[in-house]
Amino acid sequence: MRRFELAALCLAVPAAFAAAWGIDPGLQFLLVEALVLFLMAQMWNLAAGYAGQVSFGQQLFVGAGAYALFAIANATAVPVWVVLAVVPVLVGLAAIPLGMVMFHLKHAYFAIGMWVVAEIAQQLVLITPWLGGTGGLTLRPNGEPMQGFPEQLVLGLALFGSVALVVGLRVFLRTPMGLATLAMRDNPAAAEGAGVDIRRLHLILFALTAAGTALAGAMYYTTTLYTSPLDAFQVNWIVATMFIVVIGGIGTLTGPAIGTVLMITLREVMTAYGFSGDQYWIVMGLISIVTLLFLPRGLWPALQAVLSRPRATT
């Protein structure tokens, strides 16, 4: 691990504590949402940007994370924070057989096939009484109401988790498997020729994406204390995720951070000026299309090119 990566990790700890106990609750909710979206975007980016597995079914893992957490925490005496650590493992493991089936679909078929699976999951939860059906579930660990202020701890966790994820991914991309991932991003055929087991790598990245997204979803719904099928499995999760990655910069680690800041800022500003949610999504859609048409790799790679140009000429 490089020195500044270690420094970032160390700095993240006091920052997480400060955020958890030094900020007013309204801002905490906003920050939790932003960090959760950033985590989801980074995970989708890992699959779509690096592994080329564009999926429109990310909301499947959000909902799976939320429902796994609520179901296990409500039915057992295991502390919520322990369940929160177990959920990504469970969802990640469950994703492996799913991946084995879904990988038979290629490209666009895979992308929309995942969306169909997310719809199936939503419909199944809707008609399953012990998961609350249409009414949804309230978080009641071991049958008791949730104590304290979960958003404080979740904010701390999400903040530290986001920094740790970026550092972790940076380190991962330097390992042999990470280098294989980069090779696969740049030229799948050549990577396969060089002995990379693409299918296995895809499966691992798919499971990692599922696990990370499930963790983000579980964290988010821990702060809301309530989840429902129409909320946890909603398409808006993938819409937001995709906009963040596409606008910020697909296949880069910094891009999703830029995309998240832009998206949340724009939403807050537009809401403050009295625009409706529909109008906000229309604007986001337009920005994403314009970005795709003129900077198909996103803002960050374009920015990098501009920033590095003077250096290159001198």
């Binding site: 564009v54 596409v246 229309i282 859609g285 994403s288 299309i289 795709l292």
Partner: peptide, 9 residues
Amino acid sequence: LVTFGLSII
């Protein structure tokens, strides 16, 4: 992805 953005709009 462009048509996805279009669908949202």
